[in-house]
Deep mutational scan, measured.
Amino acid sequence: FDIYVVTADYLPLGAEQDAITLREGQYVEVLDAAHPLRWLVRTKPTKSSPSRQGWVSPAYLDRRL
């Protein structure tokens, strides 16, 4: 999967189903980028939180090589 970094805090609107909150600087794996406005991502697990999966706007993501 492609690795992206979150460029700004992402707080989903209440109406968005299956969306997750992301923090600036967080790394995520993009699982599904087929839709231009919503990408399915999975967060990297940390010592304090397990990995999470949900939909985010790709405008908040920047690809890492």
Rank of each mutant, 00 (worst) to 15 (best):
Phe1Lys: 09
Phe1Ser: 08
Phe1Trp: 12
Asp2Arg: 10
Asp2Thr: 10
Asp2Met: 12
Ile3Ser: 05
Tyr4Thr: 02
Tyr4Cys: 04
Tyr4Pro: 00
Val5Phe: 07
Val5Ile: 13
Val5Gly: 02
Val6Arg: 00
Val6Asn: 00
Ala8Trp: 05
Ala8Cys: 07
Ala8Asn: 08
Asp9Cys: 04
Asp9His: 06
Asp9Pro: 06
Tyr10Glu: 02
Tyr10Met: 04
Tyr10Leu: 05
Tyr10Arg: 03
Leu11Met: 12
Leu11Thr: 15
Leu11His: 14
Leu11Gly: 08
Pro12Phe: 06
Pro12Ile: 09
Pro12Glu: 07
Leu13Ala: 13
Gly14Ser: 14
Gly14Asp: 15
Gly14Met: 12
Gly14Ala: 14
Ala15Cys: 09
Ala15Ser: 15
Ala15Glu: 15
Ala15His: 15
Ala15Leu: 11
Glu16Met: 10
Gln17Leu: 13
Gln17Asp: 13
Asp18Trp: 08
Asp18Glu: 09
Ala19Lys: 07
Ala19Gln: 10
Ala19Trp: 15
Ala19Ser: 12
Ile20Ser: 02
Ile20Gln: 03
Ile20Asp: 03
Ile20His: 03
Thr21Val: 12
Thr21Ser: 14
Leu22Thr: 01
Leu22Lys: 00
Leu22Val: 06
Arg23Phe: 15
Arg23Val: 11
Glu24Ile: 14
Glu24Gly: 07
Glu24Lys: 15
Glu24Ser: 12
Glu24Val: 15
Glu24Thr: 12
Gly25Tyr: 03
Gly25Ser: 02
Gly25Gln: 02
Gln26Ser: 07
Gln26Phe: 03
Gln26Asp: 15
Tyr27His: 10
Val28Cys: 03
Val28His: 00
Val28Pro: 00
Glu29Lys: 05
Glu29Phe: 13
Glu29Asn: 04
Val30Leu: 09
Val30Cys: 03
Val30Phe: 01
Leu31Trp: 03
Leu31Met: 08
Leu31Pro: 00
Ala33Phe: 10
Ala33Lys: 15
Ala34Val: 09
Ala34Ser: 15
Ala34Glu: 11
Ala34Gly: 12
His35Ile: 04
His35Ser: 15
Pro36Arg: 04
Pro36Thr: 06
Leu37Phe: 10
Leu37Met: 11
Leu37Pro: 04
Arg38Phe: 08
Arg38Ile: 06
Arg38Gly: 03
Arg38Glu: 04
Trp39Ala: 00
Trp39Tyr: 03
Trp39Lys: 00
Trp39Pro: 00
Trp39Val: 02
Leu40Thr: 01
Leu40Lys: 04
Leu40Trp: 11
Leu40Ala: 01
Val41Glu: 00
Val41Arg: 01
Val41Asp: 01
Val41Leu: 01
Arg42Phe: 03
Arg42Cys: 04
Thr43Arg: 02
Thr43Asn: 02
Lys44Asp: 05
Lys44Asn: 08
Pro45Glu: 11
Pro45Arg: 08
Thr46Met: 07
Thr46Asn: 09
Thr46His: 08
Thr46Val: 06
Lys47Asp: 15
Lys47Asn: 14
Lys47Phe: 10
Ser48Pro: 04
Ser48Ile: 11
Ser49Asn: 12
Ser49Asp: 13
Ser49Gln: 14
Pro50Lys: 07
Pro50Met: 06
Pro50Gly: 07
Pro50Phe: 05
Ser51Gly: 09
Ser51Phe: 06
Ser51His: 04
Ser51Arg: 06
Arg52Asn: 07
Arg52Gly: 05
Arg52Val: 15
Arg52Glu: 12
Gln53Asp: 05
Gly54Ala: 05
Gly54Asn: 02
Trp55Cys: 04
Trp55Leu: 03
Trp55Pro: 01
Trp55Gly: 01
Trp55Lys: 02
Val56Asn: 00
Val56Gly: 01
Val56Lys: 00
Ser57Pro: 14
Ser57Thr: 04
Ser57Asp: 15
Ser57Tyr: 04
Pro58Arg: 04
Tyr60Pro: 01
Tyr60Ser: 04
Tyr60Val: 11
Asp62Gly: 11
Asp62Ala: 15
Asp62Tyr: 09
Asp62Cys: 09
Arg64Gln: 14
Leu65Gly: 13
Leu65Asp: 14
Leu65Val: 14
